[in-house]
Design a binder for these strands. Structure first.
Length: 105
DNA sequence: TTAATGACCTATC
DNA sequence: CGATAGGCCATTA
């Protein structure tokens, strides 16, 4: 297909287990740092939720998305915790420890 | 083709 | 620190 969406999906698929990433970083890895919103839209229409780990994608603050299409924020939180991702008392993801910047897999 | 939309981000008050 | 405003881009109708 070659569209931007596919690039975004490809990047999201590369997120290692136990790591999380932000829309901005994914956009940057996809090719353009200004595709943050496009990333959100791409995941919103997520055609293959089983292959695209959108639960590992959070916003800049580390908060989980409100319009999560998997089953709710609780499910996403459990999935992340199950993968070893730590959460802060605020209910946010510990970005300083689990943030994936695309340097490794 | 034009206009509208959105799971964002940054800067400013 | 919280709230507000603006910008940004591809995709859809």
């Amino acid at each position: 297909m070659g569209s931007v969406f596919n690039r975004i999906y490809d990047v999201v698929k590369r997120i290692p287990k136990g790591k999380v990433s932000t829309y901005g970083i994914i956009a940057q890895l996809a090719g353009n740092p200004r595709w943050a919103r496009v990333v959100g839209y791409a995941l919103h229409v997520n055609p293959f939720p089983e292959e695209i780990p959108c639960h590992r994608v959070v916003n800049r603050k580390g908060e989980l998305s409100g319009s999560f299409a998997f089953g709710g924020l609780d499910v996403q939180r459990e999935l992340l915790e199950k993968e070893g991702v730590g959460f802060l008392p605020d209910g946010r993801v510990d970005m300083s420890k689990h943030l994936w910047n695309g340097l490794y897999e």
